[in-house]
Amino acid sequence: MSELVSTRIRNTAGKLGLPHLAETINEYTRRADEGKMGYLVFLDLVLAEELAVRDDRRFRQGLRLSKLPHHKTLDEYDFSFQPDLDPRKVKDLATLSFVAGKANAALLGPPGVGKTHMVAACRVGYSICSTSLDDMVRNLKAAETAGRLTNKLGTYLWPSVFIVDEVGYQPLERAEANLVFQVISKRYEKGSIILTSNKTFSEWGQVFGDEVLATAILGRLLHHCEVISINGSSYRPKKRLKAIERDTNVA
């Protein structure tokens, strides 16, 4: 390929928003020559790799914007420590296949069993926003006081997947619970919610300070919802013991 043609392809790729092609055109042509590729095979190669690069870029941007607390994978999760948990169900949930149907997911269990870890392992290229329930309520109350509640609600309504972590760690006042209801109600059948909670659904009346309001929230959440209950003990002490043992061995 002449330098003139190569330069023209780079310029055109840049204008089309294909920076990877602009950077690697010589590598593509080398591979085409070595593999004696036909025109269609070469075009398929270029398009497939450009799509893979774009999907990876979209995922990384989504991960950054999601504010997920950890960069985790399910390979790091110790399923042997939760013998009653079905790994296949968890891995299927992590594909976010339920998002296409605007359905929800709930992970229930005591602190330290890995609920947030599982949520952070969701790695499909949807727009994602993540928050703890306490932070969401705090932000909504501040926005309501400042007369910007509608705008702040939009923050939690636009993403395809909205993650609400740590539901139930602090009881809410009724006015606070009503703000949560507004978010859940407005997302109902319009966008997916993933939540983690250390409380059973029967205890949500205490969490939200009102049985009727809790029932209304649950009605919308559970209408289309995958529920995973994790009843094992916390493996945080286990991880801590491993760290202590490792430090002791190093010493």
Rank of each mutant, 00 (worst) to 15 (best):
E3R: 13
V5I: 14
S6K: 11
T7S: 15
R10M: 10
N11C: 01
L16C: 09
L16G: 09
L18R: 03
T24M: 09
N26W: 01
D33C: 05
K36Q: 13
L45I: 03
L45P: 00
V46E: 00
E50F: 01
A52G: 00
D56L: 03
R58V: 13
K67G: 04
K67Y: 07
L68G: 09
H70Q: 13
H71S: 10
K72A: 10
K72L: 09
D75Q: 12
D75P: 04
D75M: 08
F81H: 10
Q82D: 06
P83S: 03
D84N: 13
D92T: 13
T95P: 01
T95M: 04
L96G: 02
S97T: 08
F98Y: 15
V99W: 07
A100W: 05
G101V: 02
K102A: 09
L108I: 15
P111W: 06
V113C: 08
Y126E: 02
S127C: 01
S130F: 14
T131V: 08
D134I: 04
V137S: 03
V137M: 05
R138Y: 07
L140W: 08
A143F: 06
T145C: 05
T150N: 15
K152D: 03
K152C: 00
Y156G: 07
P159R: 15
D165G: 12
E173A: 12
A177V: 05
L179T: 02
V183Q: 01
V183P: 01
I194Q: 12
I194D: 10
S197L: 10
N198D: 11
N198F: 11
K199T: 01
T200N: 14
S202F: 12
E203S: 14
W204R: 07
W204D: 05
G205S: 14
D210I: 12
E211M: 11
V212E: 15
A214E: 14
H223S: 11
H224V: 00
V227E: 06
I230F: 01
L241N: 10
K242R: 11
T248M: 09
V250R: 10
